[in-house]
């Protein structure tokens, strides 16, 4: 692996991944929607290109063929907030992913690495359970899972290696979307009460630099047509994560559990296992949850001060 194309390169996980590839001495073509990047900084080995991934015809015209060997796909509209419920958007994301896969093949890439999610497992469980009524929040995971299903057949058919790393939950400095860790930290900063479900569901959170490293290792060493869970190796009930975060960031706060009605199902801890990525790719997570949330909290405080 020498030269890579990364879509969604200016996003939260995408931008950290670009930095990691550059630090490893790779040449990166960074694609994203903005005219100029918000997160990415200039680098001699990085070229930024404004690109609408739903128009792969234009993409193919703009990018020289046979220059890049690996295509890493993060671009996905609506991965947080209410946009997760938008099935038109999520279906379009899935279709865009397949088109990018085909474009990657045409550009001469031999590997296509796409960001999956652990929610694909929740979707599977909820769909096959008799009488279950999954909430609209599942639609994002459904979109990802549909993309996964379609890509696996299409990749096999057109002859490109598909690799599917699945993110449990990424968090860290720079995350702007309203997702669990940073919304909870914002509440701590604003002195708002911390109110949760019973939080008995199994969970995992990985610091964003560890996620970026995992993508690099999967792209380089992952086995074709395999999926790899990216986790912290310490998956456990959500409540334990919350208590660790509160202890690290707001020792005086008293989180309330069970005040939010909760009807969800649980994913067994075995699903969170990261044995495959450790054995095949040599991945070891480095940042503890306490350390990661502390870093994120310090950054959020700085952002609030600037405002």
């Amino acid at each position: 692996m020498k030269n890579v194309i990364i879509t969604g390169a200016d996003g939260f996980v995408g931008s950290y991944t670009v930095k990691h590839f550059l630090a490893e001495g790779k040449k990166v073509l960074a694609l994203d929607m903005g005219e100029s990047p918000r997160r990415l900084e200039p680098h001699p080995n990085m070229q930024y290109m404004q690109c609408d991934i739903s128009n792969t015809k234009a993409m193919l015209e703009a990018i020289p063929a046979n220059e890049y060997d690996t295509f890493i796909h993060f671009a996905w509209a609506g991965s947080a907030g209410d946009a997760r419920f938008d099935y038109n958007l999520q279906m379009q994301n899935a279709l865009n992913t397949v088109e990018c896969l085909k474009a990657a093949k045409q550009l001469g890439c031999s590997r296509f690495v796409c960001a999956g999610t652990i929610m694909e497992y929740e979707v599977e469980a909820a769909i096959h359970e008799q009488g279950s009524r999954p909430g609209m929040g599942y639609i994002y995971g459904m979109g990802k899972h549909i993309a996964h299903c379609l890509c696996k057949s299409v990749a096999a058919n057109i002859g490109i290696d598909l690799l599917w790393p699945m993110i449990t939950n990424a968090y860290g400095v720079g995350e702007l979307s309203p997702r669990f860790v940073n919304t909870t930290l914002r509440k701590i900063i604003n002195g708002e009460p911390l109110q949760f479900t019973a939080a008995t569901q199994n969970y995992d959170f990985v610091y964003v630099t560890d996620v970026a490293k995992a993508f690099f290792l999967v792209a380089e060493k992952g086995k074709p047509f395999c999926e790899y869970m990216i986790g912290s190796r310490h998956a456990r009930p959500l409540k334990e994560f919350i208590l660790e975060m509160v202890k690290a960031c707001a020792p005086d706060a008293k989180p309330l559990f069970g005040d939010v009605p909760y009807t969800g199902t649980n994913i067994p801890l075995s699903i969170f296992a990261i044995d495959a990525i450790r054995e095949n790719c040599g991945f070891e997570p480095e940042v503890s949850f306490a350390e990661g949330t502390r870093r994120t909290m310090d950054w959020l405080k700085m952002v609030e001060l600037k405002q």
Binding site: G137, Y203, V260, T265
Partner: peptide, 22 residues
């Protein structure tokens, strides 16, 4: 019985949503 299944990290946006989920 038909209350939607939510994720453990979900926090209802307001009391109405809380009541519907509950």
């Amino acid at each position: 019985k038909e209350r939607p299944v939510i994720d453990a990290t979900y926090v209802p946006k307001n009391y109405e949503e809380w009541l519907r989920l509950q």
